[in-house]
Write a protein that binds this DNA or RNA. Structure first.
Length: 875
RNA sequence: GGGCGUAUAGCUCAGCGGAAGAGCACUCGGUUUACACCCGAGCGGUCGUAGGUUCGAUCCCUACUGCGCCCA
């Protein structure tokens, strides 16, 4: 395929074959520059920044969903004439990337320390150049309309400058500080983690009760982490706990160590849990650390960075999990183990990167003081600067920002933005800004740590636009229009971007809207995971079903905030829809549909024409509203239903008849077909860009649907009478089809029939269409009706007499009538029950009562008609 | 332990105060010249359980049960 526009409709193959076309269409869009906006244009701005994927990552279904929705939003806005920027890029994923390269090194028998910091970082850049960013190529497969000329990476020079700038500002405002605190430590990654990088899971452990002290002065504590007892510096009880009041203020000997530790009273202790007495290990537990601070207890660290025991004695050098049973055994030998519960299921934190059990560790780290930033982030949503969709999720957002802990931002890694702080003689500390020279001289050293990746990606909505420089893009596209991401990322992305955006941009929110979609699940609604083996690779689906099918499947499942289940059948269904659209448009083209000519005035059109034009208008308005409301599932469904159930199943069939008439009628029908397909292809383009592009350029001969105008309703008043008559045709046709099916008449077989009363019912002009759709033919001379169908329509009753040229299956006919009768009788009963209830007639609104009365009349008439028919059958 | 969400057809989900819906699956019949990635006709639900509010409840309220998520 080279030049779509000049192709003849007959060149379109009988099925849509995405694999042969997609890549070429995509490259043409990129080359044409459609995705790169002009920041100086007068058009209103629309901007989405892609939440930057991890440089080590590859496309998974969650991305595919995310990207489909972002692409749909930007494509629509572009068609609406906005200056549209979808900003792509990647983040450097500190821990993940360092892990990948360290694994590579270990295969060579080396560690990063063999290389040294500088050479290691060089090596990571090499890796990034060679293997990083696979996902960028995969985004092209999906059809992502991003501005590739603005591709960014969080470690780029410009973005690094942004990091250094904001670090210094926060530091000078006292919002970044360094302190010795208990942080989450991964003994395998050898770095601090933030709270949200820890995942809690129920693990089987043990609960051991240990007696400290002797005789009357002894006290029993319960713990799941016996190995930490070497670092205990107190035992705590609740101040009101009568059992221990006499012991508060005394000391007990800490077993195995000979140290004497105080018994303190602290409100924090839960007297209901265990014995009501807890061991206090301030250097190895965050709660104990707080107790320690309140009671001035010493912090005794008993493990090193790899979680091996450092306390002197027989346990020195043991791993924490080896030390635990060893210490319990030693205590048991002394008769100090009072009770043991095994297995004891409790919640344990794991490193989100490598799943190692996290060790709370006392260490000197950098923190962001989040309280003032988080408060402002909350306010921005409370006062409507930013709107969260769906609104229900705002509550979760508030819960989070209102209770956020200070954010540990230092990481003991080499890959990342190095903390721009220098330490000099006499405890001098200097924070160096981007345009400043770091202090020189051997007595000055830079902080060895790097910043959390989220620190730099929190700047993404403005750092990618050029901040801290004043650029045309920043001016035009900040605040971003909407951030699209999964609700599971609310705390990772949204909160951090909000905090930094509001801070850096003087209270201007990073985005006007946040759209949160759900998670992808398997067909049974289970979360996808490697261990479950239920992961669906979007690339496989892209190969098998095409990008449009994958996109449509995801859009169709995207109800705001709720998860979606996926199975192959869904994708196959979407592929079928694409093919349906393909063939329907191909049919229109083969019949000479054209958008070149103007649709004739309404009074020269048929009921069917006016009906489909009105429906087209309605679907334009509906889809538009649903787009504004981020209702992707509903708008996809609306388009699916309109295209398949209305346009293809009814209008195209009627159009066949109208084109068969020839002359002006055929020309008018071609114009209507052209208009309707033009509109529906435009409406579908944001969801299924490839198939629509291919069809639309053929239909119109224009350059590209990417930059075509988004449809607006024509504003014509809907013709309710035409709609009612078409509904009548549908009912009539359906009744005949139903009868044929009951009677076992082959679908292709024409049946001689006489339509009595069609003129009176107002369907005279549609009789030919009815005959065509119901496969009826003219009665002819030898017409002997052997069956009849009666259909009540708003305009009157239509009686269809059929010559089945053979015996009629009376049993089938009676069965049908009895079934219909039962329905009508049930309806009558229900209506009577209401109408005979004075409470209903008195209290219900008059229009409701009138409606029920109307339904009752219909039921009564149906019963009379059906009963009469049954009598004819001798039933 | 605290908080939140959810329970509708075999499956996945819409609907959320006045006649139970969709897609898929299933059954039956089809070479209907756009499409078998199709066409036509069907089958299938006392809307988790028990109370309450209301003339009226799948829809609102309460409790319970199941499932899921977040936080500690």
């Amino acid at each position: 395929m080279t030049d779509t526009a000049s192709q003849q409709p007959t060149d379109l193959p009988p099925a849509w074959e995405p694999a042969t076309v997609e890549a070429e269409l995509y490259e043409r869009w990129v080359d044409a520059g459609y995705f790169a906006p002009d920041p100086d244009s007068d058009a209103p701005p629309f901007c989405i920044v892609l939440p930057p994927p991890n440089v080590t990552g590859s496309l998974h279904m969650g991305h595919a969903l995310d990207h489909t929705l972002m692409d749909a939003l930007t494509r629509r806005r572009r068609m609406q004439g906005y200056a549209t920027l979808w900003q792509p890029g990647m983040d450097h994923a500190g821990i993940a990337t360092q892990n990948v390269v360290e694994r590579e090194l270990s295969r060579e028998g080396k560690t990063r320390h063999d290389l040294g910091r500088e050479a290691f970082v060089e090596r990571v850049w090499e890796w990034k150049g060679e293997y990083g960013g696979r996902i960028l190529g995969q985004m092209r497969r999906l059809g992502d309309g991003v501005d590739w000329s603005r591709d960014r990476f969080t470690m780029d020079e410009g973005l690094s400058k942004a990091v250094q700038t904001i670090f210094k500002r926060l530091y000078e405002d006292g919002l970044i500080y360094r302190a010795e605190r208990i942080i989450n430590w991964c003994p395998r990654c050898l770095t601090a983690l933030s709270d949200i990088e820890v995942e809690y899971a129920d693990d089987e452990g043990e609960l051991v009760s240990i007696r400290y002290g002797e005789g009357d002065n002894s006290i029993v504590v319960a713990t799941t982490r016996a190995e930490t007892m070497l670092g205990d510096t107190a035992v705590a009880v609740h101040p009101d706990d009568e059992r221990y009041k006499h012991l508060v203020g005394t000391e007990v000997e800490l077993p195995l160590t000979g140290r004497r530790i105080p018994i303190v009273a602290d409100e924090h202790v839960d007297p209901e849990f265990g014995t009501g007495a807890v061991k206090v290990t301030p250097a190895h537990d965050p709660n104990d650390f707080e107790i320690g601070r309140r009671h001035d207890l010493p912090n005794i660290t008993v493990m090193d960075e790899r979680a091996n025991i450092t306390a002197h004695g027989p346990f020195e050098g043991l791993d924490r999990f080896e030390a635990r049973p060893a210490i319990v055994a030693a205590l048991r030998e002394q008769g100090r183990i009072v009770a043991e519960k095994r297995p004891y299921v409790h919640s344990v934190g794991h490193c989100s990167r490598c799943d190692t059990v996290v060790e709370p560790r006392l260490s000197l780290q950098w923190f962001v003081k989040v309280e003032p930033l988080a408060r402002e982030a909350g306010n921005a949503v409370r006062d409507g600067r930013t709107t969260i969709h769906p609104a229900d999720l705002s509550k979760r957002y508030f819960d989070w920002v209102d209770n956020m802990h200070d954010w540990c931002i230092s990481r003991q890694l080499w890959w990342g933005h190095r903390i721009p702080v220098w330490y000099g003689p006499n405890d001098k500390v200097i924070c160096v800004g981007p345009d400043e020279e770091p202090p020189s001289g051997e007595e000055w050293t830079q902080d060895p740590d790097v910043l959390d990746t989220w620190f730099s990606s929190a700047l993404w909505p403005f750092s990618t636009l050029g901040w801290p420089d004043e650029t045309a893009h920043l001016d035009k596209f900040y605040p971003n229009s909407v951030l699209v991401t999964g609700y599971d990322i609310l705390f990772f992305w949204v909160v951090r971007m909000m905090m930094f955006g509001l801070y850096a941009m003087d209270g201007k929110q990073p985005f006007d809207n946040v759209y949160l979609h759900g998670l992808i699940r398997d067909a049974a609604g289970k979360k996808m995971s490697k261990s479950r083996g239920n992961v669906i690779d979007p690339l496989e689906w892209l190969d098998r079903f095409g990008a449009d099918a994958v996109r449509f499947t995801l859009a169709r499942g995207a109800n705001p905030g709720s998860d979606m289940a996926l199975a192959e059948e869904w994708a196959a269904g979407s592929r079928n829809f694409g093919n349906k659209l393909w063939n329907a448009t191909r049919f229109a083209l083969m019949n000479g549909a054209t958008v070149a000519s103007v649709v004739p005035p309404r009074d020269q059109l048929t009921d069917a024409d006016r009906w489909i034009l009105d429906l087209t208008d309605a679907v334009v308005s509906e889809v538009d509203g649903l787009f504004d409301d981020y209702q992707f599932a509903k708008l996809s469904d609306a388009l699916y239903h309109f295209t398949w159930d209305e346009l293809c199943d009814w209008y195209l069939e009627i159009a066949k008849v109208q084109i068969g008439e020839g002359g002006a009628r055929a020309d008018a029908t071609r114009a209507v077909l052209g208009h309707v397909f033009d509109v529906v292809l435009r409406l579908l383009h944001p969801l299924v860009p490839f198939v629509t592009e291919r069809l639309w350029t053929t239909l119109t001969g224009d350059e590209s649907l990417v930059v075509a105008e988004w449809p607006k309703p024509t504003g014509a008043a809907a013709d309710a009478d035409a709609a009612q008559r078409i509904a009548g045709v549908q009912k009539l046709v359906t009744e005949v089809r139903r009868f044929r099916s009951d009677q076992g008449v082959k679908p292709g077989q024409r049946v001689k029939a006489k339509l009595v009363g069609v003129e009176d019912a107002g369907l005279g002009s549609l009789a030919t269409a009815v005959s065509s759709l119901a496969r009826l033919e003219a009665p002819g001379d030898s017409f002997t009706p052997s069956a009849s169908i009666e259909v009540s329509l708003p305009g009157g009753h239509v009686h269809v007499e059929l010559d089945l040229s053979g015996t009629v299956d009376l049993a089938a006919e009676r069965k049908r009538l009895e079934k219909d009768l039962a329905v009508a009788e049930k309806e009558l009963k229900g209506c009577d029950a209401k109408l005979n209830n004075p409470n209903f007639t008195d209290k219900a609104p008059t229009e409701v009562v009138a409606k029920i009365k109307g339904r009752r009349e219909v039921a009564v008439a149906d019963i009379a008609r059906i009963t009469a028919r049954l009598e004819i059958f001798g039933g």
